[in-house]
Write a protein that binds this DNA or RNA. Structure first.
Lengths: 336, 336
DNA sequence: TTGTAAGCGTTATCAG
DNA sequence: CTGATAACGCTTACAA
């Protein structure tokens, strides 16, 4: 077994093949200016020595790493892994490797991350993290790292963005609900620190209600299935609240409310209706199936990666992509 | 905005601070042999110039990248993202960055991946991929890249492994089932190409039945919720099969069977019982809750990363960790 | 404590 | 078509 210092270098290959290292370099870079004969010879010695070029040295020399940084919160949500899956698929297709920068909810850590981004020499980044402000992105791109930012409107020279539009469809649904005689009190589940997307939805929720002059309710909930389940179980049995139309951040939370309601003897959707904002495939796996506002995060991931490669090739024309959420009627709400 | 060639280098910092680049290097590496005064001065210019060391150059010079490669199949399963979450958490704690190498079910691609591993200069890898054989791992470690391999018994000098033990608990449950008078036919859902873990379970399933002299059934199923749901819906309504104890690979598949049964008017667990082999949190979110064989993949991820750092520090004593699955009784099977 | 200079493994520019 | 040789940005003996 070779030890670290034994890494076969281009120089050793050159020597063994009886050519200069420049020639070897040409061979591994598939330059055309090499005689088939010498190419053959070099390739053979590469094989026999088990030589693999050092990406590090190549990157240092070329200023390209073929590495893409992905900045996402470390939260272990299904929609995040969907996003990642989408990015991964295209990255592979385009021959990029992904480096993961996962942030927590701390601002400091986010800053440390951008520090790392720079030192790591990624060719570009995909950012889906609410901790990073427009300024942070600007800082990143000031180091000439193109970025595609998800759920944050900050496109610029070398920054593309992908926007989600939940607002319209949410508003429409709320209006429709009341128009069609919806009578349960509408309740928005506020989750602390759950990011811009949820905040925007909450704002839309409140604004729409105020426009309509309808009463509404916002209650805090914990961003965990178990806690939320327990809280609602208590609520539903204590008799405080026996009915309602609950708008939840994501499937787990929606399930928590739904299960709590059912386990308290309430009937979905007769007594309690539930809407999950970020629907994943679990929305149609659970029973009753969950009505959701759906955006295909795998598609978002793919698109992000496509935009980034375009950006890298300096041929991104449309710097902004909008994903409109679609309302998917299922069993957890009454069809109106 | 600076362009690529404008990256501030250690040399520029040195010049601006009026010291040699060696001193700057010492400062950024927190060497103690630097006068507080000069350190101050250097740090100031680092700030004002916005200098960030090049990880590439550092890595090239030191032969350490602080990058860990993670090789996992690209399949978008919850238990995989749990694993990744675990790895991520500890990687961050230990100040490593993760590079993702996702493989498909093709052997060629797997080989291309190991090629990439080498050129990428990762300090170590965590492997959870059934496409990679012991030889492949050996190849990786012949390039002096320590590895922690999950679900594959191949520990060696610089390779640690994490093993799952589903076999005993599965066997015990099967035996117990019949001892306590279980009468439904037991059916194992075979998924093509779903990896070693499932194959081992299948083997245990068959072997146990043959030992007991009990009839059993293995049926093929598709590794997707929708397809499996449809197939079983058809089966349950066509009357071929109205009852059974189904052993499924993971939660989604188990849900498919469970939902198909319920939607066909069958009652869980009276008519149909269901066991999910790899249980995730969705097992207790869906209703009826799923009986599972559970291994906490987040813990597995954490442990893998811990083992790897130990390996990197050459202080890993216990090269093998075993995770024993625990049987979790829930509503989808009858308690016996 | 600080500076000088030789690597680290490539690519790329020139000559030949 | 091929070979020297200078970058790329940093670390690290060795000297001063």
């Amino acid at each position: 077994m070779k030890n670290l210092k034994d890494r076969v270098t281009i120089y050793q290959v050159a020597q063994a093949a009886g050519v200069s290292l420049a020639t070897v370099s040409r061979v591994i870079n598939k330059a055309d200016s090499v005689t088939p004969a010498t190419r053959k010879k070099v390739e053979a010695t590469i094989q026999s020595l088990g030589y693999k070029p050092s990406g590090l040295a190549q990157a240092l020399a070329t200023n390209r790493t073929t590495n893409i940084g992905v900045i996402i919160p470390s939260a272990n949500y299904v929609y995040l892994s969907n996003l990642l899956a989408g990015i991964t698929e295209i990255a592979k297709e385009k021959n990029y490797v992904l480096t993961l920068f996962s942030t927590s909810h701390s601002r400091d850590e986010a800053l440390a991350m951008i520090e790392k981004i720079i030192t790591t020499h990624v060719d570009g980044v995909i950012v889906f993290d609410d901790q990073l402000s427009a300024d942070d992105i600007k800082k990143i791109s000031s180091y000439n790292v193109p970025a595609v930012v998800i759920d944050n409107k900050i496109s610029s020279d070398r920054v593309g963005d992908i926007l989600f539009s939940y607002d319209t469809v949410l508003r429409d649904q709320i209006i429709n609900y009341y128009e069609k005689g919806g009578e349960k009190p509408m309740v928005f589940l506020h989750v602390h620190n759950a990011g811009r997307l949820l905040s925007r939805c909450e704002k839309t929720f409140i604004k729409t209600h105020e426009e309509l002059g309808r009463p509404y309710k916002v209650i805090n909930c914990n961003d965990s299935y178990t806690r939320t389940y327990q809280d609602f179980r208590r609520m539903f049995t204590s008799g405080e609240e026996k009915t309602g139309y609950y708008i939840c951040y994501r499937d787990s939370i929606a399930c928590a409310v739904q299960n709590a309601a059912m386990d308290s003897g309430l009937v979905i959707p007769r007594d309690v209706e539930i809407l999950s904002l970020i629907g994943t495939k679990y929305a149609y796996i659970v029973r009753p199936t969950l009505t959701t506002m759906h955006i295909d995060m795998i598609e978002v991931g793919k698109r992000a990666m496509y935009m980034l490669t375009d950006l890298l090739n300096r041929e991104l024309v449309e710097k902004t992509t909008k994903f409109e959420a679609t309302f998917i009627q299922a069993e957890s709400t009454i069809k109106r």
